[in-house]
């Protein structure tokens, strides 16, 4: 394989990534815009879910196309570290929300 092919493959990957990123962003913003612009068109929870899901896919797209993380063996260390980071951040954020939410509820109950 020559350098030109390499270059074209890289370029295609970046462009695919860019395209997907734009589409996902438009979907999220579009959902909000629709809910704002046309009252009653879609429910609030649909908007929230749309944003959440597109954000999650967006993360994957960035890792896959921009940071070149995939399932090949040579990328395994990186992938493991990313998954581990995700796990720890999830534990911290979810735990914090749970604990402080619980505390708030209990204080409100007293008031």
């Amino acid at each position: 394989m020559n350098r030109r092919d390499d270059y074209r493959r890289e370029l295609r990957a970046y462009l695919t990534g860019l395209g997907l990123a734009v589409v996902l962003s438009v979907l999220a913003f579009g959902a909000v815009g629709l809910a704002e612009g046309v009252p009653g068109a879609i429910s609030r929870s649909t908007v929230v879910w749309t944003i959440g899901l597109t954000a999650a896919v967006q993360v994957v797209v960035h890792f896959r196309y921009f940071l070149h993380i995939d399932l090949t063996r040579s990328k395994r260390d990186d992938l493991q570290l990313i998954l581990f980071s995700a796990l720890i951040v999830l534990l911290m954020v979810a735990g914090t929300l749970w604990i402080l939410g619980d505390l708030r509820d209990r204080m409100m109950a007293v008031l």
């Binding site: 534990l91 735990g95 619980d102 209990r106």
Partner: peptide, 14 residues
């Protein structure tokens, strides 16, 4: 990373 509350069990959470 899953145990930190044991330092403040008495803070008032349920």
């Amino acid at each position: 990373f899953t145990v930190w509350v044991h330092h403040f069990f008495t803070m008032g959470q349920s």
